[in-house]
Design a protein around this nucleic acid. Structure first.
Lengths: 145, 145
DNA sequence: TATAAATCAGATGTTTTTATCCGATTAATA
DNA sequence: TATTAATCGGATAAAAACATCTGATTTATA
């Protein structure tokens, strides 16, 4: 629904990697796809994109894998992950798919949706990788099922 | 983003048809796809689905076309159109795509998204075809560009 | 230095969504 | 009754999203 499957996997993978990094553990592709319940090869592609965007780091070779910089986790927001995978959302924000939907040229639900969109964007812009991975570390949230 | 392209076209088409029905005009497929800027043959398929769901009516033959029952417009909600085209949303409501995301087994953004999802569903359940088509009739909203 | 375990990059395959085509049917009207 | 302008239904095509495969490269370690 809201995000592409790739983006869902990307967010879940990033949170899992971050959670492992809080324990100074590197996560291998195999671990990740098992723990977030995603197809391995497809997940690999998404992880590469996240590496290119600097959201996570990869280490090649035996004992390699993926890791997240603990110092950057507070700074990285859910929005950054979404943009890395699904691209800029601003075009896609009209419920009825109009390209130039705005308060000047509103679609029939623009005014009713306005505050919801605003809340949603605020959530994406303020939710950090730090808090998502901490909730997981503390057993307060899930990444599969 | 939120809805499929088919669903966006379906909503826009329904609002246009309803707006014409307020003037006792039937809308032809050609008119509809021109006025909402959608591919004609694809829109035809979507209209058939909406007819099957009783959202709109179709009239065959010359002078035929599509129309909406003015008496039912207050009763028909945006949610009815969405369900007719995209099906039940309740499965697809977790931002991270978890099947059993709930307050008991929440994904890492469940609690942050909860109120937004609620507001969104409320909007779908309370916005009527009547008000969407009226805003269009009154020149207060757009269906293309 | 050979092996094993990992990521990387590009090609390929599958499924779903989006879109089109065409012949059949319906109904108004000249 | 013939023509014309509409919807309907099924088949097909194209594009995008989702997913896999394979060979290359990297690096720890026996």
């Amino acid at each position: 629904m809201i995000f592409s499957k790739a983006c869902e996997y990307g967010i879940r993978a990033t949170v899992y990697i971050a959670r492992q990094s809080l324990n100074q553990n590197r996560a291998s592709l195999k671990d990740i796809s098992r723990e977030i319940d995603s197809p391995e090869a497809f997940t690999a592609k998404i992880l590469q994109e996240l590496v290119r965007h600097g959201i996570i780091n990869s280490v090649k070779g035996a004992t390699g894998g993926f890791e997240a910089d603990v110092k950057k986790m507070r700074k990285i927001k859910l929005m950054d992950i979404v943009i890395a995978i699904d691209g800029d959302l601003s075009d896609k924000m009209c419920v009825l798919g109009l390209k130039k939907c705005s308060s000047i040229q509103p679609c029939p639900v623009h005014h009713k949706y306005k505050s919801i969109r605003k809340d949603f964007q605020k959530m994406l812009n303020t939710t950090s990788l730090s808090e998502m991975s901490s909730s997981l570390k503390d057993g307060l949230s899930w990444l599969k099922i």
